[in-house]
Structures are given as C-alpha cells and as structure tokens.
Computed example of a mutant assay.
Amino acid sequence: MDNSTIVDTLVIGQGLAGTLVSWELMQRGENIAVIDEGLPITSSKIAAGMFNPINTKRFTVSVNAEANIEAALDVYGSMEKELGIQLIHRQNIYNVIGNTKEGNDYTLKFDHPFFQKHTNSNPVREHHIIQPFGAFEVELSGWIDLRKMLSSIRNYISTKHVLVEDVFDYSRLSHQHDTWEYKDIRAQSVVFCEGYKANQNPFFSDLNIIPCKGDVLEFEAPDLQLTRVVKKGIYIVALGEGKFKCGSLYKWENDNTELQQADYDELKQKLDSLIDVPYTITKHEAAVRPTTKTRETLFCKHDTLPNMYVVNGLGTKGVINGVKVVRQLIETLYP
C-alpha cells in the first residue's frame, strides 16, 4: 500500500467519452488515472466530429440544440485555450438534397422558426458538387478535430496525472475498504468508457452495446474548393491544402475492424455520386462504434457496487451529447 498511486477517479478508456470525462474531472482539480491500450485507430480517432442542430434525414431539431452546442463549444474552447491548439472548426453544412421527396420534406419544415433561423433554402452553390435536386445550408454547425484532441489530452494526462497504456484486466479490479483497487492504483470512483468493448465488461452484463463498423476515406482533390462541410448520406470535410475526409458507412452488428474491399468500393461509389472532379484516395480506415438500440447516450451507475459508472454510446452527435452526459456524471459524483 505504501507504493500505491491514490487518485479520485479511475477512468477506463480514452476515446471521446473517456477524454471528456477526464477533462471535466481535471478541470475540477481532481486527480485521475486513465487506463487505455493506445490503439492507433479507434472510432473516436477517425470520426469527423461534426456538430449539427438538425437531423437532416428526418428534418427534426435536436432538443435544446442551441444551448447544448454552445455549452459543448465552451468545453472545447477551454481545451484550445489551455493546450494552445485549434480544435473547433465552425463551418456551415451544405446539405445536398437526395431526391424530390427530401426536397418536399425540407420545404414543409421551413416554416418552423428554428429552420427559418438556422437554415438557408437558397445557399451559394458549392462548385463541383453534384446536386440535381438542390441543396440547403445549415448554420450553427461545424466539426471538432477529434484526432488532435485525443492526442493532445493524452499527452496532458501523461504529464500531469497518471496514464497507463495497457489492456484493462477486469480480474484485477476489486473494492476494498471503501476504495477501488486496481494493481497499484487506489481510487474512490471508477468510470468505464470502453466503446464497443463494453460488452466484455463483467460488471455491466446488460449494456447491450451494438457494434457498428464505419469506414472513412481521405483523398486529395486540388480542384475541389469547399467552403462548407458537404453532406448527402456521407460527409466531406476539407482538411486543408486540397486534402479531404469523407465517410462514413454503417455496418450494424459488425465488430470486424479489418479493411474490406467491398466497403472501400461502396464508400468510393458514394463519393463519385457527389463530386465531379478527379481525386486520389490516400487513406482508408475503419473502426467500430458503440451504439444502442434507442440511439441514446448510455450513462448508468452500477446497481449494487459503489461509485462505479459507465459512459458510452455517444452516437453521431457525440461531440455535443458527450459533454451533456459527462456533466450529468460530474453532478452525480459531486452532488
């Protein structure tokens, strides 16, 4: 016990959820330890990190969209300030209409006050985008550079707190004398943020996480000059200097992280239907997301074991929903 590392909270996993949990705890002045195996490719690392107040498939407005987005951007802004990096890219979304029905659905929604305030039915056209049915523009949108965020905060944790780069061993976690013990770490609370691997967690056997494989491509297209994020089934985000990222596919109940030619071809076909300029694909990546049947973010406390929590399944609006659910966790830990 004399050589033990004593912390307030032990965080398992450092994807988007684990990073947000760690950041909020560190901002409160709490001592933390993070255990993460440091995989080079994860769903959080390859995600676009987009935020958008509107579900552009169903043309519905997210609940408390304005307040939730601004609250989340405050958090990412605090990271930018303390770490000296840029994470927030405020860009409108140029939403390409896929067919006549989609166009009619959008027209019917345009009388809604939120749509009138935050969408533009007659945007300046993005060149080299194929759009036979037109497009509309969504404001209060953009993306967070998640790969940079995860890497920068990982370095921050390793210098100021405790970072253990290893696979978590559930058999080594026990509760003794009102304290959680894991190898030489002692903590008051444990928060699991394990992504789709949470299905292997013996402490929470009923999470019912659904793995969903997603693929992304990076490509170079010197003639493509985008001023906004483009979205039509897939997204295209400009990374600068003629480089772009596009994605993603949704392969439900699929936890195979290997790259598949069929997935590459499917995503390339979607890209070909959206842009009319030559391009060169430079990277293909795939990872598995954690999802739930209800598509809702998962936050729960263990029924019987003290101070043990799960934050998971942040979903397609994870950069916004994640901040909200982590605030709920903090309020539970420190009422």
Rank of each mutant, 00 (worst) to 15 (best):
V7W: 01
T9D: 03
L10T: 08
L10S: 07
A17T: 03
G18R: 06
G18A: 05
M26L: 15
E30N: 12
I32Y: 10
I35A: 00
E37L: 07
S44A: 11
S44D: 04
S44C: 07
S44F: 08
K45E: 00
K45F: 07
I46R: 02
A47F: 01
F51T: 00
P53G: 10
N55C: 10
T56W: 07
K57N: 12
T60Y: 09
E70S: 14
E70L: 13
L73H: 04
S78A: 14
I85L: 11
H89G: 00
I97E: 00
G103R: 05
Y106D: 03
T107P: 00
L108W: 08
L108A: 15
F110W: 12
P113G: 06
F114H: 09
F115C: 09
K117F: 00
T119G: 11
T119C: 14
N120P: 00
N120S: 11
N120I: 01
P123S: 11
R125P: 05
E126Y: 09
E126F: 10
Q131P: 00
F133S: 02
G134F: 05
A135K: 08
F136G: 03
F136R: 03
G142C: 02
W143V: 05
L150P: 08
L150I: 13
N155H: 15
Y156L: 12
S158N: 14
T159G: 02
E165S: 14
E165I: 03
Y170G: 03
Y170I: 13
S171Q: 15
R172Y: 08
L173P: 08
H175T: 04
T179D: 06
T179Y: 07
T179F: 07
W180E: 12
E181F: 12
I185T: 10
V191R: 04
C193I: 09
Y196D: 04
A198I: 02
Q200W: 01
Q200I: 03
P202V: 13
F203Y: 15
F204K: 05
S205L: 14
D206S: 10
D206H: 14
N208Q: 08
L217H: 05
F219E: 04
E220Q: 11
A221I: 05
A221F: 09
D223A: 13
D223P: 02
L224F: 05
V230F: 03
V230D: 02
K232F: 02
G233K: 04
I236E: 01
V237W: 00
V237C: 00
A238Q: 07
L239E: 09
S248T: 11
W252R: 13
E253S: 14
T257K: 14
E258V: 03
Q261I: 12
D263G: 15
Q269S: 15
L271E: 06
D276Q: 08
Y279G: 09
Y279T: 08
K283C: 04
E285K: 13
A286P: 06
T291N: 02
T294G: 02
C300K: 12
K301Q: 15
H302D: 05
D303C: 07
P306Q: 12
N307P: 08
V310K: 01
V311T: 09
N312Q: 09
T316W: 07
R327A: 12
Q328V: 01
I330Y: 11
I330N: 09
E331I: 05
P335I: 14
